[in-house]
């Protein structure tokens, strides 16, 4: 009985973390609302509970309201798509540091394509996503072919892809004419939760597909196997190097799609966007319970991890905290989340 309860705790761990973050910020914002209200009306002499009654809780409502939830979900799309690819890579025992640069590169690729006359919106989508896949293919090819550390290979690719993005964009942002692709990230009816931008639905759908891919297919089992124990995987006849190529290429496709979303969100291709975004993706995956040693991780966990990252940002903004303070908070939460996860695993043993 006790053991099965623990098992559920393990899968729910990140979700509990998300709820925790939401509750903390709701409390902080409510507190702030009350204090602001007292200051505004000059009721400093009145008891605290009396002023609660008079407070409008504007900030709290804004944080928990449907409109903000929609913004949070939309802001999560790019990190979440990247985190999907990163989940597969990390479970296989690798890492991809080039993800942020690939997002920028693909946003420029998409923007430049929209400036040509021959590419239809669908063509733009296909070519942009494929561009990400090609970068991933190169990553995987070098990692597998030369037996190199993924950390080094993708570190190099991080700079290469960034340079390529600047080159393609002529070292500046690339504007493009109006296109239906902007609907991917556009917030129609900003006061209500629905309709959600297409990007949110696409991300949700891909998350389900990726989860099924990892859990229910032979390919997914092999990804876990090479991350868990590469020597065993090889002994058991899995084509380990070939798998690595496929894994990085697949991740590249996700990063390419994230780049397309980035382009739609900014309504321009920006070669200097998404610097350090790969670290947000990695943080989301690790908060979601994956191990950087490979062999462990889940799509659900990574998605919740990505939501935690965006919720932290959103809450901090509503609190009116300056940017540097947000960064300190987010960094602390990443370390704390993983520390708690390790403690939980040790307790389970």
């Amino acid at each position: 009985m006790k053991i099965s309860w623990r098992k559920h705790l393990n899968t729910l761990g990140p979700l509990v973390g998300l709820i925790f973050v939401v509750v903390i910020f709701a409390t902080l914002l409510a507190w702030k609302d009350v204090m602001d209200g007292r200051e505004f009306s000059g009721e400093t002499g009145v008891s605290f509970f009396a002023s609660i009654k008079d407070t409008d809780f504007y900030g709290l409502k804004a944080f928990l309201g449907g409109a903000n939830a929609k913004i949070v979900l939309t802001q999560t799309v790019i990190v979440a798509l990247g985190a999907l690819g990163m989940t597969v890579v990390i479970i296989s025992g690798g890492i991809d540091l080039s993800a942020g640069s690939v997002v920028a590169l693909c946003s420029v690729v998409g923007a430049q394509l929209l400036n040509t006359s021959w590419a239809s919106p669908w063509g733009v989508v296909l070519i942009t996503v494929a561009a990400g896949g090609v970068v991933g293919l190169v990553n995987g090819g070098v990692v597998a072919g030369l037996r190199m550390m993924p950390f080094i290979v993708t570190l190099g690719m991080m700079t290469i892809a960034r340079g390529a993005a600047k080159w393609l964009g002529g070292n500046q942002t690339v504007n493009f004419p109006d296109t239906p692709l902007l609907n991917l990230m556009a917030l129609h009816k900003p006061d209500a939760f629905f309709p959600l931008p297409y990007g949110v639905w696409i991300t949700a759908g891909l998350a389900v597909l990726t989860a099924l891919l990892l859990r229910q297919t032979i390919f997914g089992r092999y990804v876990f196997a090479i991350g868990s124990n590469e020597a065993t995987a090889r002994l058991c006849g899995i084509r380990v190097q070939w798998m690595k190529v496929v894994v990085y290429a697949l991740a590249g496709l996700y990063f390419g799609l994230a780049g397309l979303m980035q382009m739609a969100r900014l309504a321009q291709g920006d070669p200097t966007v998404a610097i350090g975004l790969e670290l947000d993706m990695i943080a989301a995956v690790v908060i979601g319970g994956a191990s950087l040693n490979g062999g462990a991780g889940s799509v659900a966990g990574s998605m919740v991890g990505a939501l935690i990252m965006t919720t932290l940002r959103s809450g901090s903004q509503l609190m009116g905290w300056p940017n540097y303070f947000q960064e300190i908070i987010i960094g602390t939460v990443i370390v704390l989340a993983v520390a708690l996860d390790r403690l939980r695993h040790r307790a389970a043993k």
Binding site: S228, N229, A231, T232, R234, G295
Partner: peptide, 26 residues
């Protein structure tokens, strides 16, 4: 390759169960 060996009806158990035999966390 090991893959080819399995396909041809060979099978092997490694002397090193933890490092090359099993995925202990699976």
């Amino acid at each position: 390759s090991p893959r080819g060996s399995w396909r041809n009806g060979l099978g092997m158990v490694s002397e090193n169960r933890k490092e090359e035999g099993l995925m202990l966390d699976h």
